[in-house]
Design a protein around this nucleic acid. Structure first.
Lengths: 134, 134
DNA sequence: CTGTATCCGGGCCGATACTG
DNA sequence: CAGTATCGGCCCGGATACAG
């Protein structure tokens, strides 16, 4: 039949909304920044260009896989440059593009907010947890 | 023995780094904002207080579970207020706190960056994919 | 040195059913 | 109306092994 059940309508609405979100610039940016290592890589490269192994050492907790994956994503989005020098063994330098620098500025603003307000947030959290425990 | 293998040292370094990240205000904020629905709930409430069912309708794609979970997290962090009116049936109004409003301002800045630069990013992405396909 | 390929466990999140 | 409880699929991301 042509009519849909309530459940089907809801599912359909969700699919459409997901599609809408997938094209939303803000959401795309947010999900990229939300990635665990993106902000750290941006910060590291904001201090200047660096080689793969330097990044790996500087961001101590990252796994090889995630570092490579993060770098590829950022490169694909035009946020960082990847320069390969044909030495033996090969040398690779990563650096921020202008777009990457401008994104880092935004992230810095976020960082400032966090540093100024996280204390308040943490206190609210403690108060909330204490009330729940009583 | 007292010495550690290279693998053990790396694991240890990762644990310490994770612990460090867990206390980093920026990272905490980023992982919160990265949550799929947080920004959407903030945006919705920035337009004014709303009831649970209103939010559910306004943010069409969200599931009951995730909406509740998101609201709880934001409430816990002191970003939104939850007011219960003892009517029958019960009425619940959510609204942004001052801290919540200030966070929304930051998110708005992020949104502006996304709207201004996502076109460039998308083009870079297309170019990258085209090069890979050749 | 700078990656790629594969396996696999844990957690996120949607669907569903139930409640005051 | 405004939730809570539970199950299950899927994907993220770490560990490991291999390669140019």
């Amino acid at each position: 039949m042509a009519t849909l059940t309530a459940a089907q309508k809801r599912t359909q609405a969700r699919i459409e909304y997901d599609a809408y979100l997938a094209t939303c610039p803000s959401r795309q940016l947010l999900s990229t920044l939300g990635d665990k290592w993106v902000a750290l890589v941006l910060s590291a490269l904001a201090e200047g260009p660096a080689r793969y192994s330097e990044l790996r050492r500087h961001i101590a907790g990252v796994s090889q896989k995630m570092l490579t994956q993060t770098l590829r994503t950022l490169e694909r989005d035009g946020l960082i440059d990847r320069d390969v020098e044909p030495t033996v063994p090969v040398t690779v330098r990563y650096s921020l593009t202008p777009t990457g620098h401008s994104l880092f500025a935004v992230v810095s603003a976020l960082k400032s907010w966090a540093e100024q307000n996280m204390q308040t947030v943490l206190e609210a959290r403690s108060a909330y947890d204490a009330a729940a425990g009583s």
